[in-house]
């Protein structure tokens, strides 16, 4: 349990460790996409941690990185094939960023730092913790960007062939002039900077009052 809490708060991959930024910034234009990317990363991270931990005795020291990339690459390829068959619109929405999960520093980093050393159970818990931390922070980031940029909250859109209908909440009853700047790449940097700065200031205050 403590491991999971650490992954969400103390070692949050986005807020504290600043890892896995490329796909986060590119995909987080709507709440739905960011939430689903979080799920995908959680899934790959947990599986790769477990597989690496199971095989750690067989991996020679000189071939650590290639073997880890092979394991993660295989998992991502399986996922690519599944998504492109069953949820094509989502696969198209992710684009190249799905393949780029292979070089996502969170997954490779956890495999080297944790899964190569700890037991299977520990690695599993670590994967779930860090994955949840990522899921929560990317969903929040996507939520903020979509509300500011579109004035909506998309819950089901790209996955509509699975759920059978689209669910998009329109906040402000259409009286909102969307500031599309926030969903553009430049806006992503600004929103990320301001959110991180707010968290930093809050931490600073907490530190001072103690």
């Amino acid at each position: 349990m403590r491991k999971i809490k650490d992954g969400v708060i103390k070692e949050n991959p986005l807020v504290v460790l600043m890892l896995g930024l490329c796909s986060t910034m590119a995909i987080s234009t709507t709440f739905e996409k960011s939430f689903l990317l979080g799920i995908v990363v959680l899934f790959v991270l947990t599986l790769s941690n477990v597989v690496v931990s199971l095989l750690k005795k067989g991996i020679g020291k000189s071939v650590v990185t290639p073997s880890l990339i092979l394991i993660i690459g295989t998992l991502v390829t399986i996922l690519e094939l599944l998504l492109s068959t069953f949820v094509k619109p989502l696969y198209d929405a992710f684009g190249i960023y799905l393949s780029l999960i292979v070089v996502n520093c969170i997954i490779l980093g956890r495999a080297i730092l944790v899964a190569m050393k700890e037991s299977v159970k520990e690695s599993f818990m670590d994967g779930v913790g860090i994955g949840l931390g990522y899921l929560l922070s990317i969903s929040f980031f996507g939520l903020v960007r979509e509300i500011l940029g579109h004035g909506t909250i998309t819950i089901v859109d790209a996955t509509q062939n699975v759920f059978g209908k689209t669910i998009v909440l329109h906040l402000f009853d259409g009286n909102y002039f969307p500031i599309s700047f926030f969903v553009s790449p430049a806006g992503a940097f600004l929103v990320a900077g301001i959110l991180l700065g707010m968290i930093g200031t809050w931490k600073e205050r907490k530190h001072e009052t103690r």
């Binding site: 600043m18 700047f181 553009s184 790449p185 430049a186 806006g187 992503a188 940097f189 600004l190 990320a192 900077g193 301001i194 991180l196 700065g197 707010m198 968290i199 930093g200 200031t201 809050w202 931490k203 600073e204």
Partner: peptide, 23 residues
């Protein structure tokens, strides 16, 4: 203090991005 390091780096990148992509 809270904005030092990564946050201000992100904000700067955002401004560079605006210039490059002629928003």
């Amino acid at each position: 203090k809270g904005f030092k390091g990564t946050p201000i780096a992100f904000i700067t990148l955002g401004i560079i991005a605006l210039l490059f992509t002629r928003y």
